[in-house]
Write a protein that binds this DNA or RNA. Sequence first.
DNA 1: CAGTGGTCTAGACCACAGC
DNA 2: CTGTGGTCTAGACCACTGG
Lengths: 245, 245
Amino acid sequence: MAETARQIADDLRVRIEAGEFPPGKRLPGEPALVKQYGVAKMTANGALKLLVNEGLAYSKPGSGTYVRDFQPLRRVANKRMARTGWSSGQSVWSPDLGRRDLVVADIRVNEVAAPRQVARALGLDSQDLVLVRSRRFLVDEKPVQLATTYYPASLVAGSAITQQNTGPGGAYARLAELGAEPVQFVEELRSRMPSGTEADLLALPAGTPVMEICRTAFTADGDRVEFNQMLLDAGSYVLEYHFTS
Amino acid sequence: MAETARQIADDLRVRIEAGEFPPGKRLPGEPALVKQYGVAKMTANGALKLLVNEGLAYSKPGSGTYVRDFQPLRRVANKRMARTGWSSGQSVWSPDLGRRDLVVADIRVNEVAAPRQVARALGLDSQDLVLVRSRRFLVDEKPVQLATTYYPASLVAGSAITQQNTGPGGAYARLAELGAEPVQFVEELRSRMPSGTEADLLALPAGTPVMEICRTAFTADGDRVEFNQMLLDAGSYVLEYHFTS
DNA sequence: CAGTGGTCTAGACCACAGC
DNA sequence: CTGTGGTCTAGACCACTGG
C-alpha cells in the first residue's frame, strides 16, 4: 500500500539476493505488483526498470521479467606470465568456467589515414596510412567483443595481415616474419555505459556497461607496431592481469 | 510533435556530441521539452533520465540537468615496469591530467574469520583469522575508491599493519620487514552497475558503473600474503597495465 | 486468443534551488 | 516566491509472447 517504485525494487532485490528468485526465474509481473502493492501500472513498470538498469534482471516483452545470470569469460592479458607456477592462486570469479568457443565474425579490412588517437598511439603523422582490421567476437551466437586493430600501412603492406585470413599463428606471427614481433604491451582500460550503437552491436541488455581497452604493442626495440581498440560486454568478461613490481 | 522519449534523447545526444552543449552546460529543462516537442512532462522527464542513465548527463533537482564532464585519474598497476623506456607511448585518454591528491579516509582495522572468497584467494582455511583493513579514497572531497585488504592474521600480528597508520613506506614496507615482501601480483577485474549501497558510499551519479578489482600479492617464494578488493568509480579512473608476453 | 511489458498522456503533489 | 526535477496516478494504446 502506497509503496514507491524504489521501495518495491528494494524489496525484490532483497528477495533475489536471498535466493527466492534464482537466475533465470521469472519475477512477479506488473499486474501482480499492481495488485500486491496497490500502485499504478507505471510505478510497477518503474520498479522493474530499476532492476533492469542495475543489471540484475532483463525483460522479455510479452513474456516477463527475469533474473539475470552471469557466466563471464576469462580474458588473461598476458598468458605467458600466467603460466608460471607462482600464480597458481584460485580464481576469484567464475572458477569453473567451461571452455566456450570464441567465434570471429564480420571481419573488415581497409586502409585509411590514421585517426588522431591512432596516430598518437603509434607515433605516426596524421597523413600516414594505417591498415584497419575490425571484427566482432561471438560466443554461443552472442556478440561479446568488438575489436579494431591498426597497423602502420607501410609495415604490413603485402603481408597476410592485409587479408581477411591472416594465416597460421595470426597477425603476430606475420609481424614476427616481418622482423617486428610484438613482445611488450600497454593496455589502457576504461568502463562506461555504451552508446546506443554500441549497445546494438553487442546486443547488450540495459544496465550493462562496456569495458574499453586500448592496447599498444611494442617490439623489443621499442617500436610501436600495433594499436588495438577493444569494446567488451562487461557482463561477459572477467579480465586478468599478471605482473611484477 | 509526437516525438517519443527515445527520439528526444537521441536528438539531445547528437547535439551534445556536436558541441552545442559542452560539459557542464545546462540542457533544456522539462518544461522546454514539453513545449518544443509537444509531449507530456513525464515523457520529457523520461528523455532526460535516459541521458542520465547513459552517464552523459546528471541532474540537480530544483536546478536543471547538465552535461557531465570526465577527468579520470590514471591508475598504473605496475609502476616499475611503466618507468622503463620502451613504454613511452602517448596516453590515449586524459593525457593532460593535473596531479590531484588522493586522500585516505574512514580507515577501519579489525580481525575476523576469513570469508570464503578471501580464504580461497590466500590459501587459508575458513577458520583462519585475517586482518581486515578497509578504507575510502577521496579526490577533491569526492570518493573515488573503496578498498578492503586482507592479511593472514598470523603473519602481520604485532606489526604496524594492525595500526591505522602503517608507517613510512606503508604496508608493503612492513611486509618486507617481516620477510614477506610482495613482488608479484595477479589482478582480476570486473565491471558492473553498483548496488544502492555502493552508489551511496561512492556518491555515484546514476549511469556510472563500478570496476571491481581483486588483487592477490605473492612473495618471491610464491606465498600469498595479501588480498585486496577494490571498488572504483568507473567514471573517475583509467587503468593502465604494462606487461610482456 | 488473453496476458505481458513498453510507452504515452494529463494532471497532481512534493522537495529543493536560487533569486 | 517561482521554477525546477522527481515521482505517482489512472487510463489508454501498441507489439509481442505463448498456449
